[in-house]
C-alpha cells in the first residue's frame, strides 16, 4: 500500500518535467547557498577560536590592537562579541535562503495543487481522506528536496574527485569531505527540511479544503 503511495508521489513530481527541473535546480542552488553559509559560519567560528593576543598583535600591531580592544575588558570578551555578531549575521543569511526557498516551494506547490483540483476531488470521492491527500502533497515536496540533495551530493563528489580536498585558501580549514560526513551536512539538511514543510503549509491547506463535489465541476 505504502509503496504505491510513494510511487504515486514520485510520479506526480515528474508529471510536469519543466516545473520539476526548475524547482530541483532552484533547491539545488539553495542547498549550496545554505551549505556555504553554514560552512562560512563554521570557518569564522574556527578563526575566532584561534585568536589570541599574539596572533592579534601580529595582525593589527600594538597601537591598533589597543584601539580595537578599547571597549572590551579582555580578548575573551572581544572574541565572545565577535562570535555573537557572526552567529547573528549567518542566522540572517541562512534565514534569507530558507525564506526564498520556502516562498518558491509554496508558489510551485500551490500551482501544482490548483492544476490538480479535479484529480484531488476524484481521490476524495473514491474514499481518500483529507489527510491522505495532504500527505501526498507534502511527500511530493519532500521528494523534490531529497532529489535536490542527491544532485548536490553528486556534484560535491564530482568536485572532490576532480580537485581532492582543495577548496581554495579561504576554506583551508574545511575539507570537502566535511560537507558530506560531518555536522555541517547535518545542520544544512535539517535546516533545508523547513523549506518543504513550511512551504507546503498553504498548498496543504488548499488541498485539505477542496470539496469533492466542487472539484468535480472544475475544468
Amino acid at each position: 500500500m505504502d509503496l504505491l503511495f510513494f510511487s504515486f508521489a514520485l510520479k506526480n513530481i515528474f508529471r510536469n518535467k519543466w516545473r520539476s527541473t526548475f524547482i530541483i535546480l532552484l533547491l539545488t542552488i539553495g542547498i549550496f547557498a545554505l551549505l556555504f553559509s553554514v560552512t562560512l559560519s563554521e570557518v569564522s567560528k574556527n578563526l575566532i577560536d584561534n585568536v589570541n593576543e599574539s596572533t592579534m598583535k601580529s595582525s593589527f600591531g600594538n597601537e591598533n590592537l589597543s584601539a580595537l580592544l578599547e571597549n572590551y575588558s579582555s580578548i575573551e570578551d572581544f572574541k565572545n562579541d565577535m562570535t555573537k555578531s557572526m552567529k547573528t549575521l549567518f542566522f540572517y543569511i541562512i534565514a534569507f535562503f530558507v525564506l526564498i526557498g520556502t516562498l518558491l516551494m509554496m508558489i510551485v506547490m500551490l500551482k501544482a495543487v490548483g492544476e490538480r483540483t479535479r484529480e484531488i476531488g476524484v481521490l476524495k470521492s473514491i474514499g481518500w481522506t483529507d489527510f491522505r491527500v495532504s500527505a501526498l502533497v507534502l511527500l511530493e515536496s519532500i521528494f523534490q528536496l531529497l532529489i535536490s540533495w542527491i544532485v548536490v551530493i553528486v556534484l560535491l563528489l564530482i568536485f572532490y574527485l576532480i580537485n581532492g580536498n582543495n577548496m581554495g585558501e579561504f576554506f583551508n580549514s574545511v575539507h570537502i569531505t566535511k560537507f558530506i560526513v560531518e555536522e555541517i551536512f547535518a545542520i544544512t539538511f535539517l535546516t533545508s527540511l523547513f523549506i518543504p514543510i513550511i512551504g507546503t503549509i498553504i498548498p496543504l491547506y488548499k488541498a485539505f479544503r477542496i470539496k469533492p463535489s466542487e472539484a468535480m465541476r472544475y475544468e
Partner: peptide, 21 residues
C-alpha cells in the same frame, strides 16, 4: 489519473484499507 497505470488506478480506492499490497 494519467500518470498511473490502469492497474494502479484501480488500486487507488484501496489505499488506507487493511489489504496487503
Amino acid at each position: 489519473i494519467p500518470n498511473l497505470t490502469c492497474l494502479e488506478n484501480i488500486e487507488l480506492p484501496l489505499f488506507g484499507s487493511s489489504n496487503s499490497s
